[in-house]
Amino acid sequence: MHAILQGKRLIAFDLDGTLIDSVPDLAIAVQRALSDVGLPVPSEEHVRNWVGNGAQVLVERALTWALSEAPGQVLQTTAYDAFMRHYGAAPNALTRLYPGVRTALHDLHKAGYPLVLITNKPERFIAPILSHFELLALFAHCVGGDTLAEKKPSPLPLLHVAQQLDIPPSASVMVGDSRHDIAAGKAAGFTTVALPYGYNHGEPIEHSQPDVIISSLLALTE
């Protein structure tokens, strides 16, 4: 196992951009939602740069792009409801696991580490996606962006799972691809592990100063 895991008893993972590349399905849902409200639709690459802060912010960014100004609340609500409907209908059509994810998660689970998922994605989508990839049983706990009163970069979700599993933050690791993951981990007192791929709004993950950067989840098991 990687040296960063020495003395650790809990490993938390982000989902989008860390375990899965979900942008193709998110982009289709955003495009259909904006089409429903009569607005121009963004490209997949636009959507890739907007992912990471939860569904409400994703829709708000798309609307702001289409309108060249912030949307009103009625339009935001209508477009958000449309997005949730479209994404819920097909959250796994084009989504793929990143290379090495399945093997790494199984190896860490077999080694006895409790694994938890902490994502800003709405909670209702977590189980269907993890079940689709036959990974749900590996996770002891899952927290979505709407599970608690706050989401990443707040440390609350991380502290919540640590408390639920009775494991101190100092013995815990947060693995993610964005500055929000690293900020949440640092604020919670977790050791932070970053991946250079994924969705970080075009900003090098080095700028967030994680404790370590790995090129693949497989590095955790080597």
Rank of each mutant, 00 (worst) to 15 (best):
M1W: 05
G7K: 10
I11V: 15
F13W: 13
D16P: 00
D16E: 01
D21V: 02
S22V: 01
S22W: 00
P24Q: 08
P24G: 06
L26W: 00
A27Q: 04
A27Y: 02
I28K: 14
A29P: 01
V30K: 00
Q31H: 04
A33M: 05
V37T: 15
S43Q: 11
N49P: 01
W50K: 00
L58D: 00
A62V: 09
L67P: 05
S68P: 04
A70Q: 15
P71Y: 12
G72I: 06
Q76C: 13
A79F: 09
M84R: 11
A89M: 14
A89D: 15
A89F: 11
A89I: 12
A90W: 08
A90C: 10
L94W: 08
L94H: 13
L97N: 12
L97T: 11
Y98H: 06
P99K: 10
G100L: 13
R102F: 10
T103R: 15
A104I: 07
H109D: 14
Y113I: 05
P114A: 03
V116L: 04
V116F: 02
V116D: 00
I118E: 02
K121Y: 02
P122V: 09
P122A: 14
E123T: 12
R124H: 08
R124E: 13
F125N: 01
I126Y: 05
L130D: 09
S131V: 06
F133D: 09
E134G: 06
L136C: 07
A137T: 14
C142H: 11
V143A: 05
G145D: 00
G145N: 00
G145E: 00
T147I: 13
A149C: 06
E150I: 07
E150R: 14
S154H: 05
L156G: 05
L156S: 12
A162L: 08
Q163N: 14
P169L: 09
S170I: 10
S170T: 15
D181W: 04
I182S: 02
A183W: 03
A184Y: 01
G185K: 07
G185Q: 10
K186R: 15
A188L: 05
F190K: 12
T191R: 09
N200L: 04
E203A: 12
E203F: 12
P204R: 05
D211K: 10
D211C: 09
V212P: 06
S215M: 11
L217Y: 11
A219M: 09
